[in-house]
């Protein structure tokens, strides 16, 4: 009986694939896609100002609320932060990825690979906690800065409007550093994979034709590694945009999209507005992915 069943399945691969796919598709389709639609639907409802209850009729009213100056600021602030983190992550990740891909050999290569992979998987909260320890007023950064007699430099940096604050742990600089630290591993690995695929002969040819190292880097290596860079930036950008825990723990009181979503669905009970806020990163990411696809970044994932 079992044997006949397996024979039938072997002869009819279409049926077999359908059987294989049914459980995962049911799970992802019902639980995940279903939930996404539930969210989307909620964003077209609105909240009744008097009763505070959700009115279940389709309207764009909630989306208009997103455009008020206060909410617009939140969206703009989040996107700027996501751009800044992505740019900085690319700058710091590039030398690590380049060295690991092109120069390290044997054990050193394994060391670099693990060195880039471990932080990707180590605990998100522990990373944030480590920075809470580091950035605290009595923590290691202030200890080092004061020990070197450079306290005035730190104070000057913190005195900047907007990005500064009373101390590192309540300023945008702090938020930026921690977001960068938490999400940078997602940039290193795709970048490293892309750099490893840059053909050696092309670099040698560039060298033979008299290009300096800098010229080779700019005109050969970076253009060829661009898909990996875009693939990495998809992660850093998306993850920064949706993060609500980092800015809540390290940063000023001005909110990011994630915090707005969390606050509106929780204490405020304004699920439609929370849903509308959540749609913003989806739309931004849809554009981003569409652009990345056109640049061929998906092959590097």
């Amino acid at each position: 009986m079992l044997a006949r069943l397996s024979d039938t399945l072997w002869r009819r691969p279409g049926l077999f694939i359908l059987l294989l796919l049914t459980p995962p598709l049911l799970w992802l389709g019902i639980i995940y896609v279903g939930s996404l639609f539930a969210l989307l639907l909620q964003s077209f409802f609105s909240i009744d100002e008097f009763s505070g209850l959700i009115r279940y009729e389709l309207t764009l009213k909630t989306y208009y609320e997103l455009l008020t100056p206060a909410n617009g600021d939140i969206i703009l602030r989040t996107i700027i932060m996501a751009c800044a983190v992505t740019a900085a992550a690319t700058l710091i990740a590039f030398p690590i990825a380049l060295y690991a891909a092109r120069h390290a050999r044997g054990r050193l290569k394994a060391f670099f690979y693990l060195g880039a992979m471990m932080p990707l998987w180590s605990s998100y909260l522990v990373k944030i906690y480590a920075w809470k320890l580091i950035l605290a007023k009595e923590g290691i950064i202030n200890w080092v800065v004061e020990g070197m007699g450079l306290a005035f430099v730190l104070n000057a940096i913190l005195a900047f409007p907007v990005i500064g604050g009373n101390s590192l742990s309540v300023s945008y600089i702090g938020t930026f550093i921690v977001l960068l630290y938490v999400w940078i591993p997602f940039m290193i690995l795709p970048l490293q994979a892309a750099l490893e695929r840059v053909p050696e002969p092309l670099l040698e040819a560039s060298d033979d034709l008299g290009a300096t190292a800098g010229q080779t880097l700019r005109h050969v290596t970076i253009p060829l590694a661009l898909p990996g860079m875009i693939a990495g930036s998809i992660f850093t950008f998306s993850l920064t945009m949706g993060d609500y825990i980092v800015p809540q723990i390290i940063g000023s009181s001005r909110r990011f999209i994630g915090q707005a979503v969390y606050a509106h669905q929780g204490t405020a009970g304004n699920i439609p507005l929370a849903a509308a806020f959540a749609v913003v990163p989806i739309v931004v990411m849809a554009f981003y992915l569409w652009y990345a696809r056109r640049r061929g970044a998906f092959d590097a994932l």
Binding site: Y32, S35, L36, A38, L39, S238, L239, M241, G242, D243, Y244, G258, V261, Y262, Q265, A274, A275, A278, P281, I282, M285
Partner: peptide
């Protein structure tokens, strides 16, 4: 997609 989207969905 950011975890917050999965979460709130």
């Amino acid at each position: 997609l950011p975890g917050i989207i999965t979460g709130i969905s």
